[in-house]
Design a protein around this nucleic acid. Structure first.
Length: 318
DNA sequence: CAGGTC
DNA sequence: CCTGG
């Protein structure tokens, strides 16, 4: 895998027993430390990003014993971790995700980076073709506009200065104003404000995030789980609602829309079943719904899921 | 209708 | 309600 983490382009390659990494480039402004120090620093950042100090095996065992279906999914999808993203990037990204599809979200975020983010220049002698072949992945997976363009995520300051019109031009649609407004609010609240929410309790985090433009319960929960250490939080989107209907409580199917009441019921179901790390358990169940992981699941399970989707009349069961 | 919010 | 499939 090749992509941007903070101010650097990183390459990761996983083998049976190890995970290798190297840095391919960095933003020009970053004062480059001695190479040996950078390696240690990047290693520490990866440990933080993938939350490697949290042992996953005990969680998997707990979830597997709590749920028959989860037992099989856990076996099929090992190592599914929740990322610990940079909170500002996470927040803006999930504001872009609302009422939107994954493909377009990725495009919008790449446009945001390319237009407002600092460019990352690759080190001498490194090109993305190297990077792509090294990992054996397609070059289409790269977060590059062209063959050599990488950008870090833009700062709050830069986004606050952006015009709504220009943001719309990048394909953000009505979310353009959400981005600008939230950037302005964050600038006013000061640099460390968002990260400081990591020290707060779930309810405070939710309340503070929901006060921002473009942030409702679902987006708030995503930011809480994926960047603010709220391991118990379960973001409920249309897919997670489906999972809850299908696996935990068919009566949820009667509800016409994802109202706050339904939202709360679904989260409560996950927490009663999976406990403290329900957000992480949710991540595994959610991943199992995605087309990219479907092929790894047992055939009868895939069939059961397809039947549910089709049986509802192409999603018309709502 | 898509990984919702105003 | 932006926008693309």
């Amino acid at each position: 895998w090749v992509g941007v983490l903070g101010p650097r382009v990183l390459e990761l390659r996983q083998t049976e027993s190890d995970c290798f990494f190297r840095c391919l480039g960095e933003v020009a402004s970053a004062e480059s430390a001695p190479a040996a120090e950078t390696v240690d620093h990047v290693r520490a950042e990866l440990v933080d990003y993938f939350q490697l100090s949290k042992p996953l095996a005990p969680m998997y065992e707990h979830w597997a014993s709590a749920d028959r279906r989860m037992n099989r999914i856990a076996a099929a999808l090992p190592g599914m971790r929740v990322l610990r993203q940079e909170p500002h990037e996470c927040l803006f990204s999930f504001i872009c995700s609302s009422n939107n599809n994954i493909g377009r979200i990725g495009g919008i975020l790449q446009s945001l980076r390319a237009r407002y983010g600092p460019r990352i220049s690759l080190y001498e002698g490194i090109d993305t073709a190297d990077a792509a072949t090294f990992g054996g992945d397609e070059i289409t997976d790269l977060q590059a506009v062209d063959d050599e363009a990488f950008f870090a995520f833009p700062s709050v300051e830069t986004l606050a200065e952006a015009s709504e019109e220009e943001l719309r031009g990048l394909g953000l649609g009505y979310r353009a104003d959400f981005i600008r407004q939230t950037a302005l609010a964050l600038r006013q609240k000061g640099d460390g404000w968002l990260c400081s929410l990591r020290e707060e309790d779930v309810d405070t985090v939710r309340e503070e995030l929901c006060a921002l433009r473009g942030v409702g319960p679902k987006v708030a929960d995503c930011v809480a789980l994926f960047s603010l250490d709220q391991v118990e939080t379960v973001p409920v989107d249309t897919h997670v609602w489906d999972i809850a209907c299908r696996e935990f409580d068919p009566s949820l199917r009667e509800c016409l829309s994802l109202t706050p009441n339904v939202y709360a019921r679904v989260g409560a179901l996950f927490r009663s079943r999976f406990g403290t790390y329900s957000g992480w358990a949710h991540q595994l169940l959610f991943a199992a719904e995605l087309p990219q992981f479907r092929s790894r699941l047992p055939a009868d399970m895939v069939e059961e899921m397809a039947e549910w989707r089709g049986g509802g009349g192409g999603g018309a069961h709502k």
